[in-house]
Protein backbone atom coordinates (compact mmCIF):
# COMPACT_ATOMS: atom_id res chain seq x y z
CA UNK A 1 0.00 0.00 0.00
CA UNK A 2 2.78 2.38 1.01
CA UNK A 3 4.60 1.57 -2.20
CA UNK A 4 1.53 2.35 -4.29
CA UNK A 5 1.09 5.78 -2.68
CA UNK A 6 4.77 6.62 -3.16
CA UNK A 7 4.54 5.49 -6.74
CA UNK A 8 1.45 7.63 -7.39
CA UNK A 9 3.10 10.71 -5.91
CA UNK A 10 6.22 10.20 -7.96
CA UNK A 11 4.18 9.53 -11.05
CA UNK A 12 2.07 12.66 -10.65
CA UNK A 13 5.18 14.77 -10.00
CA UNK A 14 6.76 13.52 -13.18
CA UNK A 15 3.60 13.94 -15.25
CA UNK A 16 2.76 17.43 -14.04
CA UNK A 17 6.30 18.74 -13.78
CA UNK A 18 6.91 21.95 -15.70
CA UNK A 19 9.02 21.17 -18.68
CA UNK A 20 11.41 23.62 -20.24
CA UNK A 21 9.40 23.41 -23.40
CA UNK A 22 6.23 24.77 -21.74
CA UNK A 23 7.91 27.58 -19.77
CA UNK A 24 6.73 30.92 -21.23
CA UNK A 25 9.49 33.29 -22.25
CA UNK A 26 9.01 36.08 -19.73
CA UNK A 27 11.34 38.37 -21.63
CA UNK A 28 9.83 37.99 -25.05
CA UNK A 29 8.44 41.26 -26.53
CA UNK A 30 4.90 39.89 -26.20
CA UNK A 31 5.33 39.10 -22.49
CA UNK A 32 6.94 42.46 -21.79
CA UNK A 33 4.07 44.24 -23.50
CA UNK A 34 1.47 42.18 -21.64
CA UNK A 35 3.16 42.97 -18.34
CA UNK A 36 3.42 46.66 -19.24
CA UNK A 37 -0.27 46.70 -20.18
CA UNK A 38 -1.10 45.11 -16.84
CA UNK A 39 0.95 47.75 -14.96
CA UNK A 40 -0.67 50.53 -17.02
CA UNK A 41 -4.15 49.32 -16.14
CA UNK A 42 -3.16 49.04 -12.48
CA UNK A 43 -2.19 52.76 -12.65
CA UNK A 44 1.44 51.81 -11.98
CA UNK A 45 2.49 54.26 -14.68
CA UNK A 46 6.16 54.69 -13.86
CA UNK A 47 6.91 50.97 -14.09
CA UNK A 48 4.62 50.66 -17.12
CA UNK A 49 6.71 53.29 -18.93
CA UNK A 50 9.88 51.33 -18.13
CA UNK A 51 8.41 48.15 -19.53
CA UNK A 52 6.98 49.88 -22.61
CA UNK A 53 10.38 51.41 -23.31
CA UNK A 54 11.99 48.00 -22.95
CA UNK A 55 9.44 46.66 -25.43
CA UNK A 56 10.17 49.48 -27.87
CA UNK A 57 13.84 48.41 -27.82
CA UNK A 58 12.85 45.39 -29.93
CA UNK A 59 9.75 46.57 -31.73
CA UNK A 60 8.08 49.72 -33.01
CA UNK A 61 4.53 50.58 -32.04
CA UNK A 62 2.79 53.93 -32.17
CA UNK A 63 0.12 52.60 -29.80
CA UNK A 64 2.77 51.77 -27.20
CA UNK A 65 4.33 55.21 -27.61
CA UNK A 66 0.89 56.69 -27.18
CA UNK A 67 0.47 54.72 -23.94
CA UNK A 68 3.81 56.05 -22.71
CA UNK A 69 2.54 59.58 -23.38
CA UNK A 70 -0.69 58.76 -21.59
CA UNK A 71 1.22 57.37 -18.60
CA UNK A 72 3.35 60.53 -18.38
CA UNK A 73 0.22 62.69 -18.58
CA UNK A 74 -1.52 60.66 -15.86
CA UNK A 75 1.47 61.27 -13.57
CA UNK A 76 1.38 65.01 -14.29
CA UNK A 77 4.58 65.09 -16.41
CA UNK A 78 2.92 67.07 -19.18
CA UNK A 79 6.07 68.26 -20.97
CA UNK A 80 7.34 64.65 -21.27
CA UNK A 81 3.88 63.55 -22.40
CA UNK A 82 3.78 66.26 -25.09
CA UNK A 83 7.23 65.25 -26.33
CA UNK A 84 6.24 61.59 -26.50
CA UNK A 85 3.01 62.34 -28.37
CA UNK A 86 4.85 64.61 -30.81
CA UNK A 87 7.16 61.72 -31.79
CA UNK A 88 4.24 59.62 -33.03
CA UNK A 89 3.76 59.54 -36.77
CA UNK A 90 0.72 61.58 -37.74
CA UNK A 91 -0.08 59.11 -40.56
CA UNK A 92 -0.52 56.19 -38.16
CA UNK A 93 -3.95 55.01 -37.06
CA UNK A 94 -3.56 56.65 -33.68
CA UNK A 95 -1.80 59.70 -35.13
CA UNK A 96 -4.72 62.12 -34.92
CA UNK A 97 -5.31 61.24 -31.26
CA UNK A 98 -1.60 61.67 -30.64
CA UNK A 99 -1.71 65.19 -32.12
CA UNK A 100 -4.76 66.05 -30.06
CA UNK A 101 -3.22 64.67 -26.87
CA UNK A 102 -0.02 66.52 -27.70
CA UNK A 103 -2.03 69.75 -27.69
CA UNK A 104 -3.85 68.71 -24.53
CA UNK A 105 -0.55 68.06 -22.72
CA UNK A 106 0.82 71.41 -23.87
CA UNK A 107 -2.35 73.01 -22.52
CA UNK A 108 -1.90 71.22 -19.20
CA UNK A 109 1.54 72.75 -18.72
CA UNK A 110 -0.40 76.02 -18.25
CA UNK A 111 1.85 77.71 -20.81
CA UNK A 112 -1.01 79.00 -22.94
CA UNK A 113 1.22 81.16 -25.10
CA UNK A 114 3.15 78.03 -26.08
CA UNK A 115 -0.12 76.20 -26.69
CA UNK A 116 -1.41 78.89 -29.01
CA UNK A 117 1.85 79.15 -30.95
CA UNK A 118 2.00 75.32 -31.29
CA UNK A 119 -1.60 75.26 -32.45
CA UNK A 120 -0.84 77.88 -35.10
CA UNK A 121 2.27 75.99 -36.23
CA UNK A 122 0.20 72.86 -36.93
CA UNK A 123 -1.65 74.83 -39.63
CA UNK A 124 -4.88 72.92 -38.99
CA UNK A 125 -7.80 73.47 -41.30
CA UNK A 126 -11.49 72.90 -40.78
CA UNK A 127 -11.11 69.64 -42.70
CA UNK A 128 -8.72 68.24 -40.10
CA UNK A 129 -10.57 65.59 -38.08
CA UNK A 130 -9.64 66.99 -34.69
CA UNK A 131 -9.77 70.66 -35.67
CA UNK A 132 -12.87 71.47 -33.59
CA UNK A 133 -11.45 69.90 -30.41
CA UNK A 134 -8.09 71.65 -30.83
CA UNK A 135 -9.79 74.97 -31.52
CA UNK A 136 -11.99 74.46 -28.45
CA UNK A 137 -8.89 74.24 -26.29
CA UNK A 138 -7.34 77.16 -28.15
CA UNK A 139 -10.31 79.37 -27.37
CA UNK A 140 -10.62 78.05 -23.84
CA UNK A 141 -7.03 79.09 -23.17
CA UNK A 142 -8.14 82.74 -23.35
CA UNK A 143 -10.32 82.20 -20.29
CA UNK A 144 -7.32 81.00 -18.29
CA UNK A 145 -4.86 83.67 -19.35
CA UNK A 146 -4.94 87.36 -18.63
CA UNK A 147 -4.93 88.18 -22.34
CA UNK A 148 -7.94 90.00 -23.78
CA UNK A 149 -10.78 87.74 -24.84
CA UNK A 150 -11.68 87.41 -28.53
CA UNK A 151 -15.18 88.44 -29.67
CA UNK A 152 -17.97 86.27 -28.23
CA UNK A 153 -19.06 84.76 -31.57
CA UNK A 154 -15.50 83.89 -32.51
CA UNK A 155 -14.90 82.48 -29.04
CA UNK A 156 -17.99 80.27 -29.06
CA UNK A 157 -17.55 79.07 -32.67
CA UNK A 158 -16.20 75.56 -31.94
CA UNK A 159 -18.65 74.81 -29.14
CA UNK A 160 -22.08 73.25 -29.52
CA UNK A 161 -24.98 72.21 -27.26
CA UNK A 162 -24.48 72.32 -23.51
CA UNK A 163 -20.77 73.12 -23.93
CA UNK A 164 -21.72 76.27 -25.79
CA UNK A 165 -24.10 77.33 -23.02
CA UNK A 166 -21.51 76.73 -20.31
CA UNK A 167 -18.76 78.44 -22.25
CA UNK A 168 -21.03 81.40 -22.87
CA UNK A 169 -21.53 81.65 -19.10
CA UNK A 170 -17.78 81.48 -18.50
CA UNK A 171 -17.16 84.09 -21.19
CA UNK A 172 -19.62 86.54 -19.68
CA UNK A 173 -18.23 86.00 -16.20
CA UNK A 174 -14.64 86.50 -17.39
CA UNK A 175 -15.66 89.65 -19.30
CA UNK A 176 -16.85 91.29 -16.09
CA UNK A 177 -15.19 89.56 -13.14
CA UNK A 178 -16.76 91.00 -9.96
CA UNK A 179 -13.53 92.58 -8.74
CA UNK A 180 -13.45 95.19 -5.99
CA UNK A 181 -11.47 98.40 -6.21
CA UNK A 182 -8.76 98.72 -3.51
CA UNK A 183 -8.95 102.52 -3.80
CA UNK A 184 -12.73 102.53 -3.27
CA UNK A 185 -12.34 100.19 -0.27
CA UNK A 186 -9.74 102.52 1.28
CA UNK A 187 -11.96 105.60 0.68
CA UNK A 188 -15.00 103.87 2.22
CA UNK A 189 -13.00 103.00 5.33
CA UNK A 190 -11.64 106.55 5.54
CA UNK A 191 -15.22 107.88 5.61
CA UNK A 192 -16.65 105.27 7.99
CA UNK A 193 -14.19 102.92 9.73
CA UNK A 194 -14.92 99.35 8.65
CA UNK A 195 -17.04 100.34 5.61
CA UNK A 196 -14.26 99.25 3.23
CA UNK A 197 -14.29 95.81 4.78
CA UNK A 198 -18.05 95.65 4.26
CA UNK A 199 -17.44 96.56 0.63
CA UNK A 200 -14.98 93.64 0.30
CA UNK A 201 -17.51 91.37 2.03
CA UNK A 202 -15.43 90.94 5.19
CA UNK A 203 -18.44 91.95 7.28
CA UNK A 204 -17.24 90.73 10.68
CA UNK A 205 -13.88 92.47 10.23
CA UNK A 206 -15.77 95.65 9.33
CA UNK A 207 -17.82 95.51 12.52
CA UNK A 208 -14.72 94.85 14.65
CA UNK A 209 -12.81 97.70 12.98
CA UNK A 210 -15.70 100.09 13.57
CA UNK A 211 -16.13 99.08 17.23
CA UNK A 212 -12.37 99.22 17.94
CA UNK A 213 -11.93 102.66 16.37
CA UNK A 214 -15.10 104.09 17.90
CA UNK A 215 -14.42 102.69 21.40
CA UNK A 216 -10.81 103.87 21.49
CA UNK A 217 -11.82 107.31 20.15
CA UNK A 218 -14.52 107.61 22.80
CA UNK A 219 -12.09 106.64 25.59
CA UNK A 220 -9.58 109.21 24.28
CA UNK A 221 -12.33 111.86 24.13
CA UNK A 222 -13.46 111.21 27.71
CA UNK A 223 -9.83 111.25 28.90
CA UNK A 224 -9.27 114.62 27.23
CA UNK A 225 -12.42 115.92 28.91
CA UNK A 226 -11.22 114.60 32.26
CA UNK A 227 -7.81 116.14 31.60
CA UNK A 228 -5.97 112.78 31.75
CA UNK A 229 -3.41 113.85 29.22
CA UNK A 230 -1.23 110.73 29.04
CA UNK A 231 -4.12 108.28 28.76
CA UNK A 232 -5.87 110.62 26.33
CA UNK A 233 -2.90 110.72 23.95
CA UNK A 234 -2.25 106.98 24.37
CA UNK A 235 -5.79 106.12 23.30
CA UNK A 236 -5.72 108.75 20.56
CA UNK A 237 -2.64 107.03 19.18
CA UNK A 238 -4.28 103.62 19.36
CA UNK A 239 -7.50 104.91 17.75
CA UNK A 240 -5.46 106.54 14.97
CA UNK A 241 -3.53 103.27 14.50
CA UNK A 242 -6.71 101.22 14.12
CA UNK A 243 -8.26 103.87 11.85
CA UNK A 244 -5.25 104.05 9.52
CA UNK A 245 -4.67 100.29 9.74
CA UNK A 246 -8.25 99.70 8.69
CA UNK A 247 -7.92 101.99 5.67
CA UNK A 248 -4.78 100.11 4.64
CA UNK A 249 -6.34 96.75 5.47
CA UNK A 250 -9.44 97.50 3.39
CA UNK A 251 -7.30 98.10 0.30
CA UNK A 252 -5.38 94.87 1.02
CA UNK A 253 -8.66 93.05 1.61
CA UNK A 254 -9.96 94.21 -1.81
CA UNK A 255 -6.82 92.84 -3.46
CA UNK A 256 -7.19 89.55 -1.66
CA UNK A 257 -10.87 89.42 -2.63
CA UNK A 258 -9.91 89.84 -6.30
CA UNK A 259 -7.27 87.13 -6.10
CA UNK A 260 -9.84 84.82 -4.51
CA UNK A 261 -12.37 85.55 -7.29
CA UNK A 262 -9.73 84.74 -9.92
CA UNK A 263 -8.67 81.60 -8.06
CA UNK A 264 -12.24 80.30 -7.75
CA UNK A 265 -12.91 81.05 -11.42
CA UNK A 266 -9.79 79.15 -12.52
CA UNK A 267 -10.76 76.23 -10.26
CA UNK A 268 -14.22 76.16 -11.90
CA UNK A 269 -12.69 76.22 -15.37
CA UNK A 270 -10.25 73.45 -14.53
CA UNK A 271 -12.88 71.19 -13.02
CA UNK A 272 -15.04 71.74 -16.13
CA UNK A 273 -12.09 70.87 -18.36
CA UNK A 274 -11.49 67.70 -16.34
CA UNK A 275 -15.16 66.83 -16.73
CA UNK A 276 -15.05 67.13 -20.51
CA UNK A 277 -11.51 65.64 -20.67
CA UNK A 278 -10.17 68.81 -22.30
CA UNK A 279 -12.53 68.23 -25.27
CA UNK A 280 -10.41 65.21 -26.22
CA UNK A 281 -12.05 61.79 -26.89
CA UNK A 282 -11.11 59.19 -24.29
CA UNK A 283 -9.39 56.04 -25.51
CA UNK A 284 -9.85 53.26 -23.00
CA UNK A 285 -6.97 50.78 -23.13
CA UNK A 286 -8.12 48.87 -20.04
CA UNK A 287 -11.47 47.33 -20.78
Amino acid sequence: MKNIISFLILFSVIINAQTIKNTPDLFSPGSIKSFADYLFCQHDYLRAIEEYKRYLGDARSDTVEFKIGEAYAKMGYYSEAAKTYSDIQSQSSIGKYARLNYLKSLFQTNDFKLYRSSFNKLNLTEDTTYYREALSLYNFSFLLSAKDLPGEDLFLKPFTGSDREKLSEFYKYKSGLPHKSPVAAAIFSAIIPGAGKFYTEDYADGVVAFIATAALSYIAYTDFRADHKFRAWLFTGLAAGFYAGNIYGSAASAQLFNVKIDFDFVQNLKSYLEKVNYFVPIINFCR
Partner: peptide, 11 residues
Protein backbone atom coordinates in the same frame (compact mmCIF):
# COMPACT_ATOMS: atom_id res chain seq x y z
CA UNK B 1 4.49 97.22 8.65
CA UNK B 2 2.76 99.00 11.55
CA UNK B 3 -0.39 99.54 9.46
CA UNK B 4 -0.34 95.87 8.50
CA UNK B 5 -0.04 95.00 12.19
CA UNK B 6 -3.06 97.13 13.19
CA UNK B 7 -5.07 95.49 10.43
CA UNK B 8 -3.95 92.04 11.60
CA UNK B 9 -4.92 92.94 15.15
CA UNK B 10 -8.41 93.86 13.93
CA UNK B 11 -8.65 90.48 12.19
Amino acid sequence: GTLMFFDRFTR
